[in-house]
Amino acid sequence: MIRTENLTKVYQMGDAEVYALHDVNLDIQDGEFIAIIGPSGSGKSTLLNLIGCLDKPTSGAVFIDGINTGKLNENGLAEIRRRKIGFIFQQFNLVHTLNALENVALPMFFAGVKRETRLKRAEELLAKVGLGDRIYHKPSEMSGGQQQRVAIARALSNDPEVVIGDEPTGNVDTETGNTIMGLLEGLNKEGRTIIVVTHDAEIAARAGRTKRMRDGKVLD
C-alpha cells in the first residue's frame, strides 16, 4: 500500500516559492489501477516522482508498504526503486547504447541477478510485450510504440509490485496507446498496482479509479 501524508514540494524560483505539490494526502491500495489526471503544471508528475522515490519532498512523507521513504538514505531509495517500483517514462528513456534485451536486463544487473538468469527473464518479458522477435534491436531501430513496450518490459524486470507510468501513452499514436494500456491492464490483473499520470481523459477512463489534480492539490 502507498500512502502520502501532507506531501509538499516547493521549488524556489528566484525570490518566489512555487508549490508544485501542496499537502497531498492520497491512499493507493495494493492491486489498484489509478489514473491521475490534470493539466500540465498541476503537479501530477511531481507526485509521481515522489512516489517513485526519484525525488525528495520538501515536507510530508511517502509510505510504501509502511516504510517512510523520507527516512531512507541514497542506497535505501535505490533499493526501493529497484525492487518495488517499475517506472515507465513518456520519453521511453532506454539506454541507446544497449539493445532491447540488455535494456530489459539492466535493472536485474543492478540488482545483482546472474547473467544467464537475467537474459533468460529479459527474453521472456520481451516476448510478453510482443517483441520476442526484436530482442537484439537497438532503440534507434525501433518505433516509439516498440520502444515503450521495451520500457514496460524493463519496468517488470525485477518483478515489482508497483508500476508507475508518467504519460506512458503521451508519445505514441492512439492505436499504440491502446496496446500499451492493454498491457498495463494485463499487469493490473496479475495483481500489480498501476499508477498512471495522463491528461487524456479516454486513457484515464480505463483505470479503476481517477484522481484529478490542479495547482498542486488533489481534488476530491
Binding site: 542506497n75 533499493e79 535493472p107 543492478f110 540488482a111 519496468a155
Partner: peptide, 16 residues
C-alpha cells in the same frame, strides 16, 4: 546526465 538519471531511476546505486 540523462542516461545516469535513467539508470538511477531503474535502481542503480550511486556506487554502481
Amino acid at each position: 546526465t540523462h542516461e545516469i538519471g535513467v539508470m538511477k531511476a531503474i535502481g542503480a546505486k550511486s556506487s554502481d
